[in-house]
Amino acid sequence: MEYVSPEGLRLDGRRPMEMRQLRAEIGTVAKADGSAVFEMGNTKVIAAVYGPREVQNRSQQISDQALVRCEYSMANFSTGDRLRKPKGDRRSTEISLVIRQTMEACILTHLMPRSQIDIFVQVLQADGGTRSACINAATLALADAGIPMRDIVTSCSAGYLNSAPLLDLNYIEDSAGGPDVTVAILPKLDKVTLLQMDAKLPVDIFENVMGLAIEGCKAVSNYIKEVLLGNTKQLEYRRGL
């Protein structure tokens, strides 16, 4: 199948190096300490953060740092078909783990010993790249909750189809069976905190694809910073400062 036309356009009219439209909103769950909705094209996820709070299960308490927990799930209605089991399957468990590890790496957990931070992410609409969208949403929600972090984490995926590196795969491109490289970075520290790929790729091409994904992450981080800044300005305005 042709994923990039000879004119250099993808199936949805993007060029290979272009991302989908980003949209973010902070404070969508009033009861949570921090929350956000993040959209990449038709992929839409919501994240809610509770904490830092007292550890619910005492046996899990860590004396010198905070306990970070993460739960990823997909809404029953997130894909066209009704999902039978929205959470608890292997895929969800794996993504929960990935998100927890990624977020743990940037949260300054040593500042909050004997406490617990819960991150809930749910996919409302799935169209490829849910993993990246969840990490971006979680970053926003953590920032909204005011949890101390080293840097914001941003994530983006890239793939390689029809001999061309493609940024930010949508569902059709994702299910083409080609490699899908998901990268998360700490943009200010310029460090990679997550790198996943589920296919084989020659090293030189892999470096290109990963480079493209990192560029994508930087673009996401610029957008997230803008959103956070806008949000802070609004808070400032509300306080009447």
């Binding site: 356009l9 199936l11 949805d12 009219g13 989908r20 439209q21 066209g80």
Partner: peptide, 28 residues
């Protein structure tokens, strides 16, 4: 941004609604 909605028959014979984004350009 425009979206393209259509129905498609899956391999199993069920009808499925598909929504796809279309990015309209000014550089063609």
């Amino acid at each position: 941004l425009q979206s393209n909605t259509f129905s498609r028959k899956t391999k199993a014979g069920r009808i499925k609604k598909e929504v796809r984004e279309i990015y309209l350009r000014d550089d063609i």
